[in-house]
């Protein structure tokens, strides 16, 4: 009994100092909001970039296909932290934009490379006979893409794309490198005032896990709906 009483007291103390005192939980709330914003904008930007890059690669028009190749190679070949800091401290150093916007752009550029590969492989996995059937009926290339290929490619793409967004959400945890107060940095800030690592870090981990679990569930539901024609 004494043990449980002690445990209870220790835990409630820890929680009090980590979150309640001086409204420290606001570090996590504000950080969470930043992390979500970053992920959302970066995902949207990533899809746009990814589509253009994938189309450039598939159609293979000389200058564009080459540029797309370089872009994907460079982004995949360097760490995201390095990309983020290069964009913040060098490329956009003299541009007066909020940090959140700069980080969103950086993560969007990063994600776009991976999304483009996902979209490209999804489109190319659709049987060549489908294109031939579409074209032989007199549909143009873009009509065939829109009505025949893309709807089938989406099914191939969706699981991998969901995975990419989960990775992206977790990747935003490096925003602290440009002094952006995201969820991870919220935990770090609490840790530095309370000298207690366990409570804020485990809480941060749990919040990330909750978010990715919800994302996974959402995607699984969406996938099931798309499988209805099989």
């Amino acid at each position: 009994m004494v043990f449980i009483e002690n445990l209870y007291r220790v835990l409630s103390d820890k929680i009090y100092y980590a979150f309640i005192k001086e409204d420290r939980f606001m570090y996590l709330v504000n950080g969470w909001s930043i992390s979500v914003q970053l992920t959302l904008f970066a995902a949207i930007l990533g899809i746009f970039i990814g589509m253009f890059i994938a189309i450039a690669k598939i159609t293979g028009k000389p200058p564009f296909a080459q540029i797309a190749d370089w872009y994907v190679s460079i982004i995949r070949g360097t760490p995201a932290v390095v990309q983020l800091t290069i964009i913040y401290f060098i490329i956009l150093a003299d541009v007066n934009l909020p940090k959140t916007v700069i980080a969103s752009i950086a993560f969007g550029i990063n994600s776009g490379a991976y999304v483009s590969e996902i979209i490209r492989s999804g489109i190319q996995a659709v049987d060549k006979g489908q294109t031939e059937a579409g074209r032989s009926l007199g549909l143009s290339y873009s009509q065939t893409m829109r009505h025949v290929i893309i709807p089938q490619a989406v099914k191939n793409i969706l699981p991998a794309l969901g995975n990419e967004f989960i990775i992206l959400l977790k990747e935003t945890s490096i925003s602290g490198y440009i002094a952006l107060d995201d969820l991870t940095r919220g935990g770090t800030l609490i840790r530095s005032v309370t000298y207690d690592s366990m409570t804020p870090l485990l809480t941060v981990a749990y919040i990330y896990f909750l978010m990715t679990a919800m994302l996974s569930a959402l995607l699984a539901k969406f996938e099931r709906r798309l499988r209805s024609s099989d």
Binding site: G129, A133, S136, L137, G138, L139, P151, K155
Partner: peptide
Amino acid sequence: IDKLRRHVGMVFQQFNLFPHM
């Protein structure tokens, strides 16, 4: 070519029906 293909129907060995329709 697009215009001409409207006048030429093609049937394939593997059918190539659109599975999502």
